[in-house]
Design a protein around this nucleic acid. Structure first.
Length: 488
RNA sequence: GCUCCGGUGGUGUAGUCCGGCCAAUCAUUUCGGCCUUUCGAGCCGAAGACUCGGGUUCGAAUCCCGGCCGGAGCACCA
């Protein structure tokens, strides 16, 4: 009986526990965050960060914070404030709390001052090039020796200086073997209008500063981030040290490479503005909304990213894998229909059984869903590419012999078709059909006719056009149904 | 160039910390077969990998050293 219990338990969590390694550190009351820069909607690359955070929180019943990192007005795309939560919701991720860094400037100012008072930060009026020259040679810049009083005085007039005239630096180790770590910038002046703040502030925190302050203040227990932040983690640790804070558990994951599309948010935006792309959900883009529009189930992405886990090695995501996984979700739900691209009207010569109603199940494995009815009377549409010499079976109807322009009746039974190894092709009734357009993943289109039963569908339904592939109904027009193609 | 980090089938992973039970897991992919009916779905089966060279050891995917390859960072971006 013990054996029985174990077996049952082993089977349940199997699929979900795959990939994601156990979280280091505490598992009690964990607090994690997903912290995107609002420069556009979420890209598939963002799921690399969002999914593991959400999954860990789910497994350990912790708290997930969505923190919008909008501390660079030049890199804020206003609609992204709305789009990011929508995209997360699509992925099935519900943050427990949403924080905007642009609401927290006074907090950053407060901690900046504290650092200065502790002698852990200084106002630097060197120009960038000069500082870099000194820093690269392990030499402190003259400002580093300013007294706390001098620094406070400069800090107080910081707001009246010109952009570039001064910055606030956090002291690290001027001899650190990695030059990038040496005395990094915490605050700078930005004269740019912020979508949420307007021109209220001129003193902007640098990412390393606001992130460290917030990670601490928000009680983060673990910080999951890409390995491109490895050096930043080290920088931020100096700040924790200065403040006497406990560092969270840091976990770094490798880069996610996407086969084919390497489109950055900025490139996508450019393409949209130029009209190359129809919008953020253009099927060629790697945004979550584009993927969703094509009928990719969010669980496909969620499960795949979970399987990849948080290891440091880079990984490349392949469409084949996505399609393969997605097919598992779509296959049982997608009902089957006939579609003929570039339909050609043909008449089966010698057919004289009159008009019959052909019934086919919506799904061969789920007969309870009922049948579609396709009236057949010897005149049908066939896909242009299916009209080739030979004997074919018009699925569920009759077998025909195609010889050039001539299409003649051969037989009716399926057994006859098998015997002569006739291929089966789909057809569309002359009397009951609907215009169909399928937008492919490269934005090209297939136009043709589909069977009349397609009129029962609603936007968002995913179907399988037999021998064509899975597609999601995107729009119902007066005289046409527009589908977006997913995959075979 | 400097600093740091990686390298298991085509792709994504398990195993690496605590060497043997790994002639290496699972998924996807590809191929083959099956199917009273999708030449493109489904079902079944098969194929396919420890980056290389040394070393330690009775024994190494696992530990050590070196090479090769790949990636990231080196901003008043995040």
């Amino acid at each position: 009986m013990e054996r029985l219990g174990i077996e049952v338990e082993d089977k349940k969590p199997k699929a979900k526990e795959v990939g994601l390694q156990e979280l280091p550190g505490t598992h009690e009351n964990i607090v994690l965050r997903f912290a995107p820069n609002p420069s556009g909607p979420l890209h598939i690359g963002h799921s690399r960060a969002a999914v593991p955070n959400a999954e860990y929180v789910k497994r350990h019943n912790g708290k997930l914070i969505l923190r919008i990192e909008d501390t660079d007005p030049k890199r804020v795309y206003e609609p992204a404030y709305e789009m990011i939560p929508e995209d997360l919701e699509w992925l099935g991720i519900k943050p427990d709390e949403v924080i905007y860094q642009s609401d927290r400037f006074e907090i950053y100012y407060d901690y900046a001052r504290q650092l200065i008072e502790k002698g852990a930060a200084y106002m630097c009026t060197c120009d960038g090039a000069t500082f870099k020259e000194l820093k690269d040679n392990c030499k402190p810049c003259p400002c580093r020796d300013n007294s706390v009083e001098e620094n406070l005085e400069l800090w107080d007039k910081f707001d009246t200086m010109d952009a570039g005239e001064a910055v606030l630096r956090v002291k690290t180790d001027i001899n650190h073997k990695n030059p990038a770590i040496r005395d990094w910038v915490a605050m700078r002046i930005v004269d740019e209008e912020h979508p949420r703040l307007g021109t209220k502030y001129r003193l902007y925190p640098m990412m390393n500063f606001s992130v460290a302050v917030d990670d601490h203040l928000l009680g983060l227990t673990h910080v999951l981030r890409g390995k491109d932040h490895l050096a930043n983690t080290e920088k931020q640790k100096y700040l924790y040290d200065h403040m006497g804070w406990d560092v969270p558990e840091y976990i770094h994951y490798g880069r996610l490479k996407m086969e084919d599309i390497a489109l950055s948010t900025s490139k996508a935006m450019e393409g949209i503005e130029e009209g190359t792309y129809s919008g953020w959900d253009d099927p060629r883009l790697g945004t979550l909304r584009a993927i969703a529009r094509r009928g990719i189930d969010p669980r496909t992405i969620y499960d795949l990213i979970t399987e990849m886990g948080v290891k440091m090695a880079d990984s490349a995501i392949s469409w084949k894998k996505i399609y393969g996984l997605n097919r598992n979700f779509l296959e049982p739900v997608a009902n089957r229909y006939f579609f003929c691209e570039n339909p050609q009207l043909i008449e089966v010569e010698g057919y004289d059984d009159g008009s019959v109603d052909i019934e086919r199940p919506l799904h061969a494995d789920h007969l309870d869903r009922g049948n579609r009815i396709l009236p057949f009377d010897g005149k049908v549409y066939l896909a242009e590419s299916d009209i080739k010499d030979g004997i074919f079976r018009l699925m569920d109807a009759v077998n025909v012999n195609i010889n050039g322009e001539e299409i003649t009746y051969h037989s009716t039974s399926f057994e006859d078709a098998r015997e002569i190894k006739a291929r089966i092709i789909q057809w569309v009734p002359v009397d009951d059909n609907v215009n169909v357009k399928i937008v492919m993943d490269d934005a090209s289109t297939k136009e043709g006719l589909g069977e009349g039963a397609l009129r029962d569908l609603e936007v968002g339904d995913v179907v399988q056009f037999e021998r064509v592939g899975f597609a999601r109904l995107d729009e119902i027009k007066d005289d046409e149904l527009v589908f977006y193609y997913a995959h075979k």
